[in-house]
Simulated scan of single mutants.
Amino acid sequence: MVPTIACGKPGPAGEVAGVNILALLGIGLLTGATTVLFGFGGGFVAVPVVVWADAALGAEAIRVATATSALVMLVNSGFATAVTARRVLSALRGSGALLLLLAAGGTVGALATRHVPAGDARWGFVAYVALTIADLLLRPGFLRPRAQAQSAGGARRPLPAVLGVPIGAVAAFLGVGGSVMTVPALRRAGHPMRVATALANPLTLAVALPATALSLYGAAGVAAGRTYLRLVGLVDVRAAAALLLGALPVIALLRRRPPRIPDRAHAWGYLALLGVVEAAMLLTG
């Protein structure tokens, strides 16, 4: 079976499900910034935006949003990894097992999205972000890092390999890429925010690759014929293209000239963005 392309009746030029493509391009600029600054790869931003853009699908919009998010994360995180300094990426040496298990978990999570009610996936996203915000606020080590040696390129394994499957599964199921788990873990291991967020990109890539492949294979019963959507499998390709067109130049620019952000302010910015995403997801309900 080849990927299904479900085309609806053409709508006004420059619109995706009634949303002007320029708006998605603008959001793409933001996803590029979050990819570099927070390691998100675009997932946390892309999911509520695509849910909003594809609201005509009703409850099924969350399935399309997580699939589209996977593709956006795959390209963004892959590009961000390619332009990251090798001395920073050297911290992942010896992490082959972790990357393989992240990919395995990503496969499990992507498959689960086809069998779990769409409403459950949506509220799972909301609950997960809320719990993460509470954890970062209440548990020491993120906003108030312990006095540990912080290096930009140590050979230390960033995460235990055994965590790969659960992180990958949750990340792919919710369309968040895993950085919401990996960045806090890396920071609590002693890495400064600029290193933790950079290392999150290749870890996100491992999750997003199988999730994207499965998302592009078949539409799993999502009916796009009543909308202005263009779906390939479960992916809204026009929304993904608009988001990526805005994101990639920003990634290139910020990797070339990274902003100098104090570490503590960087951590608070990460937390604040999670709060904005949570509010956006609730408002698009």
Rank of each mutant, 00 (worst) to 15 (best):
L25V: 09
A241F: 11
R226K: 13
A219C: 11
V88S: 09
G141W: 04
L205F: 13
L131D: 02
P117F: 00
L229W: 04
L92I: 01
V108P: 07
A198E: 11
G153N: 10
L203N: 05
V276N: 01
A23M: 15
R188E: 00
A17Y: 12
R260G: 07
F38D: 08
I251Y: 01
V237K: 03
I62M: 12
P160A: 06
R194P: 07
L137F: 14
S95M: 02
I167T: 01
P10S: 09
R93I: 01
D54C: 14
V180P: 00
N201G: 01
T66L: 06
G225N: 08
P262Y: 02
T31C: 05
A240C: 07
L29E: 02
G168N: 07
F79T: 11
A23N: 11
V47M: 02
P12C: 07
C7I: 15
T113L: 04
V162M: 11
T227C: 11
V250N: 06
A185T: 13
A67F: 04
S69R: 02
T81C: 03
T284N: 14
A242S: 11
A17P: 04
A130W: 00
V16M: 08
G154A: 12
P48D: 08
G153F: 03
N76D: 10
A33K: 03
L99W: 07
F38G: 08
G43Q: 09
L98V: 03
V45A: 12
N76C: 13
T68Y: 02
Q150K: 10
L24P: 12
V207S: 00
W268E: 09
G275T: 02
A127I: 12
A53T: 15
R157L: 13
A223W: 10
A112L: 15
A103G: 08
L245V: 15
L138C: 12
A46E: 09
V232W: 12
P192Y: 04
V207Y: 04
L209A: 14
L159C: 03
T66S: 10
A223R: 14
S215R: 04
G94Q: 03
G168M: 02
R188P: 07
G96K: 06
L92T: 10
A112S: 11
P258H: 01
A112G: 01
S77I: 06
A223G: 10
T66E: 09
I5W: 13
P140Y: 03
R139V: 15
A53R: 00
G78L: 06
G190S: 06
L234A: 13
A112W: 07
L37C: 04
F125D: 07
G269C: 08
L25D: 08
G175W: 01
L99V: 07
A112N: 03
R188K: 13
L111V: 09
T81W: 01
G8F: 09
T34E: 02
A70Y: 02
V72M: 01
G43D: 11
V47C: 06
F125G: 03
M73N: 09
V183H: 05
A171Y: 00
G8I: 11
G141Y: 05
C7Q: 14
L138R: 14
A6G: 13
R260S: 12
A104K: 01
G43F: 06
V129E: 03
V183M: 07
A97D: 11
G225Y: 14
G78N: 01
L138G: 08
R63Y: 06
L244I: 02
A103E: 07
